[in-house]
Amino acid sequence: MISKKALVGAGVLASMLMMSSSVMAQTVGFSQIGSESGWRAAETTLTLQQAKERGIDLKFADAQQKQENQIKALRSFIAQGVDAILIAPVVATGWDSVLEEAKEAEIPVILLDRMVDSSKDLYLTAVGSDLVHEGSVAGQWLVDTLAGKDCNVVELQGTTGSSPAIDRKNGFEQAIKGHDNIKLIRSQTGDFTRTKGKEVMESFLKAEGGGKNICALYAHNDDMAVGAIQAIKEAGLKPGSDILVVSIDAVPDIFQAMAAGEANATVELTPNMAGPAFDALAAYMKDGTMPPKFIQTESKLYTQADDPQAVYEQKKDLGY
């Protein structure tokens, strides 16, 4: 059995280490969902960059897209005694008890790009975009572009049950409600991946008279849109003109497609959530300024008219 002395000694050593670390650089724990898409990889790259610029010692924990791994990571950060925690929660529910543990340990928690449904006093602030708003920006673009013309729309959904998929679908449907010229005829999940987007689009095209029945495509993310564009081309149709293409995320490849006239519009989800998060954290640590509970990042609409080639050049080295 481990002697009491050894335990106490270990505890003293641990607390000394913790104290010394808080005097030197700040230690922040970052629990990231995983690396399931290029956008996610860009978010991680930018967060690491931002931490380095500010001299923060960032402890990175990858959860392999599992909530239990994120809870594990948070509890480990608390045990290590970090100064603050950043987390991109993979799902909205189930964070109450671990956030309360963090609160008891007096460690501020900041959410990145996704929300939780715990009570607002359990986290410092949330930096993100309004996913429903993204969907409605895309829907509104379609409404404006069509200007009353009849249109059958097919929808490529994100991963079944994920909050971006649910919210982006809701937002789009809200925007096209009341406009009877726009009909959503097919909607299936493409799992947020290029391969699945292409496969599902192929079957949409076959089911709708070789694609002649389809006027527009709404994809919950750019990756699925890029895959679908290839499917449309292989079916002998022209994406961007025969079938309008609108999607969300604004990754570099969609700008290439827009420059080639194959995609029409995209709504930006900026991967730089960490910048505003660190700013808010710094202000809080310095003099206790409470930031707003939700720091909303802009959901900018990009179309073919916004010089897509230049935007592509700008974005392509960001680590997407």
Partner: peptide, 14 residues
Amino acid sequence: IAAADIRGADANNA
């Protein structure tokens, strides 16, 4: 074949 199909290597999902 999978990479050629989408003209890219998607290491996360392939």
